[in-house]
Amino acid sequence: MTQRSTEPILEINSVSMHFGGVKALDNVSLTVNRGDVVGIIGPNGSGKTTLINCITGFLKPTLGTIAFHGRDITGKKPHKVADMGINRTFQVMRPYFTMPAYKNLVIPLSSPRAKRVGGWRGGGRHGDRNTVAVDILEELGFERDSRVPYKLAGTLPTGYLKRLELGRCLAMRPELLICDEVFSGLSASEISSLVPLIEKLNAQGITMIMVEHRLVELFRVANRVMALSYGEKITEGPPQDVISHPKVREAYLGSEEDF
């Protein structure tokens, strides 16, 4: 376990997101402290991904504010938010299909943030960035000497694509890493190899928000969990408390009257 402080890194203040008459998010607040691994759970359509889209600038919340390190980032452009160190994976994986896997990482490595924070400048014509990209992929379980890192991303199986999503974020040297369902669609053995990786990244000092449906694995890594249902925050707290909360059980399993 890493040292967790009470220094807030991300503050979400009563954020609402309305699409016409649909309230995808309704008055949701959440504070993430440095070193936290915060889990966000909830049934399908409860607004988890919408919340992530609001944080990362892909959506502008209808109401409420979001602050990163005390600076207001509500409605900032996605690339500006990413440049500040909030990096996300996509639930539906978005690799660059026409490029080899390692070239997928050269793009974030060419970003202004990577140059500034990581000090990764392309040495010579290609040199440096390609090597760093393969280094990061190796850490994520792409065998360096195999052909996997050099294969076209479009030909890789889901397990590798999920790692590639993580890799693209890690190349940005994130402060806050937001994982949108990295465990979904993976086999049990693939998940069990990813869990230590998540723990290791957290130990390196990366704060994380994880949206998950795989509760068992999530509760191994998360130290705090927020539950959403129909865009509303039901409860927040340590994993054990959240899972035994009656409203959470109701949201997942239906209320007793339904039976």
């Binding site: 892909f58 690339h79 978005r94 793009i107």
Partner: peptide
């Protein structure tokens, strides 16, 4: 070329499309 392939990922990588 990445912009052609997938512009959302380029945005998420902190690069202005």
């Amino acid at each position: 070329r990445a912009v052609k392939d997938n512009d959302q990922s380029v945005r998420a990588s902190g690069i202005s499309v």
